[in-house]
């Protein structure tokens, strides 16, 4: 069964002569556990697509179904809860809470859900992400790669079905980039998570199960990139 189904998604910014069609009639589906890379020029509409799938923004037309649920039919409160339980976000700029330690940042979505973190899983994540030694550090005391690993931890802690990553390696060197991608892939395999990842990096795109290209708001499925 498809975990994610995008149907005829449109997004237009502005109106009249200044209207910009960021997305035009985009449709595709992603089965559970698949790792999909989205590529495209700057300004082609990749981030808009990702933001719409994550319900951070509202579409002009079209539907997004996650696990069969139409996310835009939910009200803001339901959507917030849905997002924090089912979607993990990873941003290029990390977006960690500066006042919280590594550990607190990772369990932050659970705390927002008033849940107790699963200690064993947290330890496992910290180990996998190689952050055990740094658990009490603040984001400002970490390198870029470490911060992005914290962000990955935060995205994984709720065991979401879908992980959306918007150029997670954009601010990282090649070593850190490959570490981050490796971690994401391992997680996706281990926990059967679906990953949508935006990247400009060809070699990272090549590691995905499937490649989608966005050009001027239109999507082309480049198909599976490896056997």
């Amino acid at each position: 069964m498809d975990l994610l189904e995008v149907q005829k998604l449109c997004k237009t910014y502005g109106s009249g002569e200044t209207a910009v069609n960021a997305l035009r009639d985009v449709s595709f589906a992603v089965p559970k556990g698949e790792y999909v890379a989205i590529v495209g020029e700057s300004g082609s509409g990749k981030s808009t697509l990702l933001n719409l799938i994550g319900a951070l923004d509202t579409p002009t037309a079209g539907k997004v179904l996650i696990d069969g649920k139409d996310i835009f039919s939910m009200d803001d409160r339901q959507l917030t809860v849905f997002r924090r339980r089912n979607i993990g976000f990873i941003f290029q700029a990390f977006n960690l809470v500066p006042e919280l330690t590594v550990e607190q940042n990772i369990v932050f979505p659970l705390l927002l859900d008033y849940q107790k973190p699963d200690k064993k899983y947290l330890e496992e994540l910290l180990t996998v992400l190689n952050l055990r030694e740094r658990r009490d550090h603040l984001p400002s005391q970490l390198s870029g790669g470490q911060q992005q690993r914290v962000a990955i931890g935060r995205a994984l802690i709720t065991r979401p079905a879908l992980i959306l990553a918007d150029e997670p390696t954009g601010n990282l060197d090649s070593q850190n980039s490959s570490d981050v991608i490796r971690l994401l892939k391992e997680a996706s395999k281990k926990y059967e998570q679906t990953i949508l990842l935006i990247t400009h990096n060809r070699s990272i795109a090549q590691t995905a199960d499937r490649l989608l290209q966005v050009t001027d708001g239109s999507l082309t499925d480049l198909g599976r990139c490896r056997a």
Binding site: T80, V81, R83, G88, F89, N95, L96, V97, P109
Partner: peptide, 16 residues
């Protein structure tokens, strides 16, 4: 603002 945006994206509700 930016921080709040990030918090909202990882699941903080408007009420929170």
């Amino acid at each position: 603002m930016r921080q709040y945006g990030a918090m909202r994206s990882v699941g903080m509700s408007g009420r929170q």
